[in-house]
Structures are given as C-alpha cells and as structure tokens.
Design a protein around this nucleic acid. Structure first.
Length: 570
DNA sequence: GCCGTTTTCGGCCCGACTGTTTTCAGTCG
C-alpha cells in the first residue's frame, strides 16, 4: 500500500469534517497527519511491520487515534470513520468544495438548500439565477462560481518546472520594466524547486503598489483578474496558470519573501516557534509587540530567530529547523559543482545530435566529461542498438573522444533491464563499456514484488554502474511503476551502485524524499539530464534543485568528481 | 486529534480580498 493512499483518506476525512463543521483543530490534525505521511521517506506499512503500532505514533503529527486508523487500514484495507463519513455526502461533494470561490461551507449550504451534488447541477443553478436568490448570494458570487467551474474544466493541474520557469521569466521581464518596481522575486513552490508548480507567486518592492497592481492586471499574458486589492492581486494567465502578486515595502521584503516562498508547513512552524518566544511572524516581519525585530532580509529573520539561513529548497518542515538550530544544515550541492553529464543520447538511437555535437555543447557548459548512453536492442521504439551495433558504436565514441579536445567522452549505454531482471547485453559486451546505466523501459505494470526483484537483479550485475530513472514516472503523464524503493536502495548500498536523479522536468526521478533516504544510507547519486538533444543538456539545473530538496551535498553526487576520480569510482 | 524543559488540559499561524447579511464570514495563500 502506498503512503499516498493513507494520506488521501486523511485529506478526505478532513474535508468531510469541515463540511460537518466539526472542531477546526481536529480537522487541522487530520491535514497535518496527511501532510506528514506524504513527506515520509519510508513506507507506512514497512514502518508498521518493523516497529509496530508504537513506531506509527512516533511520526510527528500521528497520535494514538490516527495511528489506530493507519493500523485499521493496513489490516482491513479501509477506515470505518472515513467510510461512514463518505456515506453522508454525495460522491461529487469533495469536487464541489474544490471549485475556486466555493468552499466547504458554501458547498454544504447549496446541498442543503438546492440539493446540488454535482458540478453539472452547480453550473445549471448558477446559470439559471437560482443561486442569486439564496440569502448571502448575489449576481457576482454566482459569476464567480461559474468562473471557478470553467477554470476547473480546463485546468491542467500542476505545471512542469521548466514550463513554470519560462512563464515566470516572461512575467518578470514585463513587470521589471515598470520604474515603480524596486525589487522583484519569484517565490512559492517554484523558488523551492518543487517537482511541479501549481501557481506563480511574485513579490515586488514598491512605494507605489497601486501602479504595480494596475500594470500587473493588464499584462498581455493575463486572461482573467480574480482579485485585485491594494497590496495583493491574483490573475489567471492565458495558459491556465494562476499568478499571485504581492507588493510590500522594502523593510518587509525578507519576511514577505519568506512568507510567500513557503512551504505552508514551514511557515506555520516558524510562527509557532516565534510564538513560544512571545514574538510574532507575519509577512510584515518578526515582531515583539509593535517593534519590528527583523524583516528586511530572510537571513535576518532566521538569524534573529536563532537559526542558520535555511535555503528555500529545504523549507518543507522536514527537520530543517532542528538542523539549522544545531548548525547542521547540509551545504547543498550547486549547479557549478557539476563536472559532467553521465546520461545522454545521440543519433545512434533516439537523440537529435551526433556524438561530437553533444560533446561540443557539453564543453561549452564547462564540463570535463560526458557519457554517451544510447538505448539497447529491446527498446525498439528508440532504435536501440544490437550487440553488434554497439561494439561499432563504442569505436565511434572513442574516435570522437580523440577528435574533440578538452572533454572526455565516455562510451556508455542505457541498457534495458529485461522483465526477468537480466540485462539486454551479455556480460562480454557490458565489459567493453566505460559506463553502464540500467533502466526499465517495458512491462511497467508488473506486480510490485516482481518489479522489485527485477531491478535488484540488475543491481547485482557487476558491470552495472547506475540505476537510472528508478521509478519510471512521467509527471502528469504516467504513474511510477510499483516498486519497493527501500529494498532497491538497500540493494544499491549493498552492491555499491549509484542511483540517478534524472533531471528532465518530466521525470525528476529519483524524487526529493527518496534522495533524502539515499543520503541517509550513504548511496552515491548521479544527476543526469538524459538529454536527447544539445539544448536539453541545460536541464541539469532541475536535477540539481531536486538534489538540493533531498538535502544532498557535493560529496553525495558522483558527477561533481573530477574525471580521474570519477573513472576510479566507475 | 495532537502535543508538552512554561501545560496530561488548553492551547492550536497570520493576514488579504470579496461580497454583502453594514460589521464580518468565507475563502484563499
């Protein structure tokens, strides 16, 4: 059972309890627990199997009662409280409460008064003017709800990091032209480098907020204005993404950046910590009574609170406060530490550029080395190379290596792990390669146990160096295959294998949370782009930010090593 | 429902914008 299944139940119970107007702090406890479960590096079932009921209770945010519910779910497959609550509400209820502009209270009211239990009924009622007749409703509110329904219909969900980055840059360029804008910072989950981004959060310092708001709401990229106030506006962009703008004075820039960067859990935590000192943290600063103690910079804020500066990527309330208090924060790996790229394709399989073109492009990025790692026979769709072909290909790579000066080109291959766990090339062929990547490209729907054994068998092969895109997920497209990641990581540790962080924004695989676990186990990671063209080599930054979210330091990442040491490692 | 070198009971993060029930509840971040 995946952790997400437990978290979803708690999220839903919270929603139901809110609809029932239950104790708001109980609701919060359910949400906190759901959040905690989602950030857990270990599988809940495994935790229970190893440490029993008490191990569950040790998880922060899980107490006696929620631990009982987790145990119940493991033993019976369901949670009675959840089932019972779900019966009290029509199936489409949670969906209704999720419509922007609606909320649980409004959803409850509409269900009681008009028996609205689906999006279709809601839309009909809003269009017919039925809604405006209710007490507390007017024409504007009905319009708002219609807009919310439209938005939900065409919503893409979350956006990939590269896409979100590109849109943020365009907005900044536009906003930056305004002379009233003194400082500009993209905050939110994009700044934290989260694998996908829900909306863009922009922070501006200006003495003329109304000017900035006017300009922002009229930008070419804006399709709808959701809200426009003196210091805060929200718009929907033409690509369907929401963008929020906040304007503050310079003296509050740091605390506003901190507030707007999040995460929500990190913010709540710092506010609680301030409270214990008798202080208060908000977007306007750190206050003792009316006196501002800090706020101009984020660094001041942390320092005054007694913490080292916490980089945005770590702000997920996953132990960063304890580490920052003790001076134990990791020195996170940086893009400039990267000395090479160990996973890319050429025209020999499904890449767009030749070996030499890839090498030249990598050289421009300042790399010392790259590995050309084309596909193998079984991946026919990508024109994988047969054993005979790859032996010739190795010679071509070596020739290119002699020809292109100033960068080492390693002869590699992204070798299929066949369904039985054997490699697509014989050991004799694998032995000829400088570097061997192992990857699953077929039979994604295998049962978890089989898939785990399949991958572990590949890790037992002495020629394999790196397990690449270890879960096979494609964000917004394809779920990860079922695999016992803890067992895979243990096997990687045992056989001294590396694990890839695939930097492509569609993959970002290994995930941040599993990176944290790999680091704990002392496994070496490799950040690679899996580039299929020269321009994709620049996707490295997304892999680095994922590594940073996983608390990784330079020493944890193989391709920060100089060539000689890397070769020794291989 | 969780949690505790101020508490096993009594707290639980902080503020902006909207619409409308003219003083605030609901929603959102």
């Amino acid at each position: 059972m995946e952790n997400q299944e437990f978290a979803d139940i708690f999220w839903q119970v919270a929603e139901f309890l809110e609809l029932k107007e239950d104790n708001p702090f109980k609701i919060r406890a359910y949400r906190k627990a759901a959040q905690a479960i989602e950030s857990l590096p270990h599988n809940l079932e495994d935790i229970y199997a190893k440490g029993g009921f008490n191990a569950l209770k040790e998880i922060s945010g899980i107490g006696q009662h929620l631990a009982e519910k987790i145990e119940e779910k493991i033993k019976t497959g369901k949670v009675a409280v959840h089932e019972k609550l779900a019966k009290d509400f029509p199936a489409g209820f949670i969906e209704l409460a999720e419509v922007q502009g609606m909320g649980p209270k409004t959803a409850l009211l509409l269900y009681k008064k008009l028996k609205i239990d689906s999006l279709a009924k809601l839309e009909k009622a809003a269009k017919s003017g039925q809604l405006s007749k209710l007490p507390g409703f007017g024409a504007k509110k009905a319009d708002n709800i219609l807009r919310g329904i439209e938005l939900k219909k065409k919503s893409h969900g979350r956006f990939l990091l590269d896409d979100a980055t590109a849109h943020a840059e365009l907005l900044c360029e536009d906003l930056g032209r305004l002379k009233e804008v003194k400082q500009l910072l993209v905050c939110g989950s994009l700044r934290r480098g989260k694998e996908t981004v829900g909306d863009l959060d922009l922070l501006v310092v200006s003495a003329r907020p109304e000017k900035v708001m006017d300009h922002f709401s009229k930008l070419a990229a804006v399709s709808q204005v959701l809200a426009k106030g003196r210091t805060k506006s929200s718009v929907i962009l033409k690509n369907g993404m929401q963008a929020d703008l906040r304007v503050v004075e310079e003296r509050a820039f740091g605390s506003a950046a901190h507030y707007f960067t999040g995460s929500k859990d990190h913010n709540i935590r710092i506010r609680q910590l301030a409270q214990k000192k008798g202080w208060k943290v908000s977007e306007y600063g750190l206050f003792k009574g009316k006196k501002q103690l800090a706020g101009r910079t984020e660094a001041d804020l942390y320092k005054k609170m007694g913490y080292d500066y916490i980089p945005p990527e770590l702000r997920e309330n996953r132990g960063e406060f304890a580490a920052a208090a003790a001076g134990n924060l990791p020195r996170l790996v940086e893009l400039k530490d990267i000395k090479g790229d160990l996973h890319m394709h050429s025209t020999a399989s499904d890449g767009a550029n030749s070996i030499e073109e890839m090498a030249q492009a990598a050289k421009k990025l300042g790399y010392e080395y790259i590995a050309i790692t084309d596909h193998t026979e079984s991946t026919r769709i990508a024109h994988g190379l047969t054993e005979k072909e790859v032996l010739k290909h190795i010679q071509k790579i070596k020739a290119a290596n002699r020809k292109v000066k100033g960068i080492e080109i390693l002869a590699g291959s992204e070798v299929d792990i066949k369904p039985d766990g054997s490699m697509d090339y014989s050991d004799e062929v694998l032995a000829q390669l400088d570097i061997v990547l192992a990857a699953v490209h077929s039979r994604f729907k295998m049962p978890k146990q089989e898939m785990t054994e399949r991958v572990i068998k590949a890790l037992e092969n002495k020629y394999v160096n790196i397990l690449v895109h270890p879960t096979g997920r494609l964000l917004n497209e394809r779920e990860a295959y079922e695999i016992d990641m803890e067992a895979v990581l243990q096997a990687a540790k045992k056989h001294k294998k590396m694990i890839e962080i695939n930097a492509h924004p569609r993959r970002l695989d290994l995930t941040d949370i599993n990176c944290m676990r790999a680091r704990e186990l002392g496994i070496r990671l490799a950040i690679s782009t899996d580039a299929h063209s020269t321009d994709q080599l620049e996707l490295m930054k997304y892999g680095v930010i994922t590594a940073r979210r996983g608390w990784l330091e330079k020493k944890d990442v193989a391709n920060t090593l100089p060539l000689a040491q890397l070769k020794k490692l291989l």
